[in-house]
Design a protein around this nucleic acid. Structure first.
Lengths: 229, 229
DNA sequence: CCAAAAGTGTTGGTCTTACACCCATGC
DNA sequence: GCATGGGTGTAAGACCAACACTTTTGG
């Protein structure tokens, strides 16, 4: 079953789905975890917001397509990138059948230059905890991505990709609290994070007001699996 | 870039990849975790073994395609099924571009009837810990699946889908030891598994030799997330 | 000198691991 | 009666969560 019908429904691809990547690109800005949304220009979802994405090129791997999309929207390269899940319900895009491989990306907020290109009406950062209703099945994608980043934060060191090269322990803790959406005990947090041996202490830093805090940097800036909290 | 080239390399799909599912179907047989392999009949990998799979139908979701493949090979329905990862390197299948969504499936061993259909030369169970070199990128798929089932065993109740309705605690422990590939302490295992309250005790059972063991059954046979070990 | 964030240890409870002996049955 | 797996509790150590005061700077 299905062959005739599918040729009928998707005449442009002879029954073969198109393959796209969709990206949930997170960053930290104004004390919140935010993800990048674009406004759809055409089709039944015109005007709605969605995660950026696009078809996979003929000579491109899925990872490369995802990396390219991150680069085209934000200018960021070499950030953290991880495949999330693949969505393939026939009806998820009413226009044509699209199987979408979703990715989770983390980019630092400084030095980002947003670029909607011509294919979207608009582009903006939006609080990850309070997304509007999104186009396609992207509500589901967003929920999954948030669950994944929260869980992954607790047993990997991937925060490094959201932070500048140098930061205080207070700032690092704030990142964890922001993303996990719960307060952490300062002493316990310091004990554990320092015990992991992933950080190196640098020199002092003046904070705008009050006592200066020691600056730290990640010894290695690449993904590692380690119990953090 | 790529459009012209891809039309050239994959003229049959106008540059659009085909979308397939591949299944790592595990079962327990003869005291080992085994997965189902099929022997490829045609193409550059003819004669090699691989995980069963096939193209996704035009009106079918990815999950449905995976479920169908499990059913067609084994006759099993309603077993545990979970999406693993999507592989999409352009060169992973030299014949034509295929993006493959891999799935992990668990089926009980009793009542399984293997069916190679016409598309494969042969079909058989093979120890998951000692797979031969497989076709395509399936070595990678197999490694990932094994990692996933081992890790998932420890925080979910999915073993229920490998076991018959009734079993002894000794048998249950053996399943864990077999899959995790390490011995577990009997008293600690019992304490923890019973404390979870997922099992109900039934009546006695004769074992071929020696003291009869109490039989247990899962209260609910559906996936739940719970720390088990 | 006051406000604000930085820095620092100890304790109690919980969880995890290791470990050994008796029991019920089939042969 | 003996071989085989079934069944059971405790103690030591590791790990985790809770908790308050002193320090350093800017204004």
């Amino acid at each position: 079953m299905g062959q005739v019908e599918s040729y009928h429904r998707f005449p442009d691809t002879q029954g073969h789905p198109r393959v796209a990547v969709d990206l949930v690109i997170y960053t930290l800005a104004r004390r919140a975890l935010r993800c990048l949304l674009v406004q759809v220009k055409e089709g039944p979802f015109a005007g709605k917001w969605a995660f950026p994405g696009g078809l996979v090129g003929g000579e491109e791997s899925l990872d490369q397509a995802a990396e390219r999309e991150v680069y085209e929207r934000t200018g960021a390269r070499n950030g953290y990138l991880e495949q999330l899940y693949t969505f393939g319900k026939p009806e998820r895009d009413p226009a044509t059948r699209v199987v979408s491989v979703s990715y989770l990306a983390l980019v630092p907020h400084h030095g980002i230059q947003l670029n909607p290109a011509s294919k979207y009406a608009d582009i903006r950062w939006c609080r990850a905890a309070a997304l509007p209703g999104l186009a396609y099945d992207h509500d589901q994608v967003g929920r999954l991505a948030l669950k994944r980043i929260r869980s992954k934060l607790q047993y990997t060191n991937i925060v490094y990709s959201l932070l500048p090269a140098e930061f205080t322990l207070g700032e690092l803790q704030e990142v964890y609290e922001t993303i996990l959406h719960r307060p952490l005990d300062r002493r316990n947090f310091r004990k554990k994070i320092l015990a992991l041996g992933l950080l190196q202490r640098l020199r002092k830093k003046r904070r705008g007001t009050h006592r200066p805090a020691a600056l730290y940097a990640f010894i290695r800036r690449r993904p590692m699996v380690i119990e953090m909290l």
